[in-house]
């Protein structure tokens, strides 16, 4: 996990990378889900608003919706995870992002996101 990530209370993270943002779910969320068996991601070009469900992750036990930490347009999708969802549980696998987006979100959208250290305190 990267210290400059910003997290939601619903366990998504967003990480600024140049002109894009990477979005995924936190290690804590992965740990809580257990064995991940199915991941459904949106198509590139899809546009989502903040807090809108953009993906579904299913563990053995249940299906969970994943929500946008900020608004934006999907420009890249992690197809590797769609094909091998179990990689998300693999601690040696590093590319755990779900989508990359272009965003023109303003400060208001970032206001309720938690610094990674605060998020960690919250869940521990």
């Amino acid at each position: 996990m990267n210290e400059s990530m910003l997290c939601t209370k619903t366990h998504e993270y967003v990480l600024e990378q140049g002109d894009k943002y990477e979005i995924g779910i936190t290690d804590y969320a992965i740990e809580q889900l257990g064995d991940i068996v199915f991941i459904e991601l949106p198509e590139t070009g899809s546009v989502f608003s903040k807090n809108e469900a953009f993906a579904t992750i299913e563990s053995v036990k249940a299906a969970s919706e994943i929500y946008m930490p900020i608004s934006g347009e999907v420009v890249e999708v992690n197809e590797e995870l769609v094909n091998s969802p179990e990689l998300l549980n693999d601690t040696s696998y590093e590319n755990k992002w779900l989508i990359k987006i272009k965003s023109s979100a303003n400060q208001v959208e970032f206001a309720d996101l938690l610094d990674y250290s605060d998020y960690k305190e919250e869940v521990e």
Partner: peptide, 8 residues
Amino acid sequence: PVQYTSII
């Protein structure tokens, strides 16, 4: 207990 290590 729902799982100890992994359900699978």
